[in-house]
């Protein structure tokens, strides 16, 4: 009987290690930037050469949109974001394109007359935001820099407008 004990224990330990490793790998892709957490800081040059520092937007509600030029749901919501940016002085929208190259992003930016900063992101930034494993993904970040909502897929503008209004009423938002 004792001869079987060690192999069985080894098998159980190995299986447990496998489950932990598998969970850990998945967790690395799916956790992060959960509501209530401080949004991961980053500093990127936008298409116009200006630096985007996330921390500079404290005091405003930040809508952070991961998108790509060829992504149809992204193309649907961007005109709505342009309008939101026009009508909400205490809202700042920032676009992070995940296109493979910058060239089509410039074309799109000019064609759509985008009125908010856009930069091209990479996998490192995507991972820090919990993994961007589909597009679009949109975060609403409150005036204290904490993630409030993570929208996966095309947003519903009335819903987002309501969320922005609610965030502007709370926290340490700058007076209009």
């Amino acid at each position: 009987m004792k001869n079987w004990t060690i192999p069985i224990v080894l098998i159980v330990v190995c299986f447990a290690a496998y489950l932990v490793a598998r969970h850990h790998r998945r967790a690395n892709l799916s956790s992060g930037s959960q509501p209530g957490q401080l949004a991961p800081e980053f500093s990127l040059k936008d298409l116009r050469g200006q630096t985007i520092n996330l921390v500079d937007y404290r005091g405003k509600v930040l809508l952070l949109n991961f998108w790509a030029t060829w992504c149809e749901p992204c193309r649907q919501e961007i005109p709505e974001f342009i309008q939101l940016q026009n009508t909400n002085p205490n809202l700042q929208i920032v676009g992070i394109s995940l296109d493979d190259s910058e060239e089509p992003v410039h074309t799109f930016y000019n064609q759509f007359k985008m009125n908010y900063p856009v930069a091209v992101g990479d996998a490192g930034l995507a991972r820090r935001y919990g993994g961007i494993l589909g597009l679009p993904v949109t975060f609403l970040i409150d005036c204290d820099g904490r993630v409030s909502v993570r929208h996966i897929g095309e947003v519903q503008i009335p819903e987002v407008t309501e969320e922005i209004t609610s965030l502007l009423k709370s926290g340490s938002c700058l007076p209009r």
Binding site: W70, D99, D100, A123, G134
Partner: peptide
């Protein structure tokens, strides 16, 4: 699809080819 997605996570053994809708 797109490279950033592939770099984050892909099916083991799969190869990345640029977006199927693009000329590249």
């Amino acid at each position: 699809g797109f490279r950033v997605l592939y770099v984050q996570a892909h099916i083991p053994g799969s190869e990345y080819v640029a977006a199927g809708s693009s000329p590249t």
